[in-house]
Measured scan of single mutants.
Amino acid sequence: NQASVVANQLIPINTALTLVMMRSEVVTPVGIPAEDIPRLVSMQVNRAVPLGTTLMPDMVRGYA
């Protein structure tokens, strides 16, 4: 089972991601792999991401 990136807090739209906003968790469906967390830092979300939501590739500008 692969860990995915999950929002550690509410992340408002257009917010640049920081390490404290994300955690890794084994979830279904699988989202962005946890090993990509360092790559996600400073990328912006293109929608509001509620606490506990799995980050999907289409939620992060420039990721996919």
Rank of each mutant, 00 (worst) to 15 (best):
V45L: 08
R61D: 13
Y63W: 15
S4G: 05
L51I: 14
L17E: 00
N8A: 12
S24E: 12
D58A: 13
A48I: 09
M59N: 06
A7S: 14
P33E: 05
D58W: 09
P33K: 13
P29T: 06
T28Y: 13
R61K: 07
R47H: 10
V27C: 03
L51F: 11
N14M: 09
Q44E: 13
G31D: 00
L10E: 12
V26F: 04
M59W: 12
D36G: 11
L40T: 01
M56L: 10
P29G: 04
A34S: 13
G62H: 08
Y63D: 04
L51Y: 11
G31W: 02
I11L: 09
A64G: 12
P12T: 14
R47N: 11
T28F: 09
A3N: 10
A7G: 04
V45Y: 00
T15K: 12
Q9E: 14
A16H: 15
A34T: 12
V45Q: 00
Q2P: 09
T18R: 10
I13Q: 14
E35M: 14
D58L: 15
N46L: 11
P57L: 05
T53A: 15
I11A: 00
V20K: 11
D58G: 11
L51P: 10
R23K: 08
G62I: 04
V41T: 09
V30G: 11
T54C: 03
L17H: 00
E35Q: 14
E25V: 14
N46A: 12
A3K: 15
T28A: 07
Y63A: 04
D36H: 12
V30I: 07
L51E: 14
M56N: 10
V45I: 10
A7N: 02
V49N: 02
L40A: 01
P12S: 11
L10R: 10
P38W: 09
Q2H: 10
V20T: 13
I13T: 09
R39H: 08
T18G: 06
V27A: 08
N46C: 04
R23M: 06
L40P: 00
V6Y: 02
S24Q: 10
V49E: 02
G62S: 08
D58E: 08
L19E: 07
M59V: 12
L51T: 10
R47D: 10
S24F: 09
T53P: 00
V27M: 07
L19N: 07
I11Y: 00
N14T: 04
S4A: 03
L19G: 11
V26G: 05
P57A: 15
N46M: 12
M59F: 14
D58S: 10
R61A: 07
T18L: 07
L55H: 00
L17K: 00
M59S: 06
T15S: 11
L51K: 11
S42A: 11
R39Y: 09
Q9C: 04
I11Q: 01
T54K: 04
V26A: 07
P57K: 06
A16C: 03
L55A: 00
V6E: 01
A16M: 15
N1T: 13
V5A: 07
I11F: 02
A3I: 07
L55S: 00
L19D: 10
I13E: 12
P33N: 12
I37K: 15
V60I: 15
S42G: 15
P50N: 14
Q44G: 05
T53F: 13
V45F: 00
G52K: 04
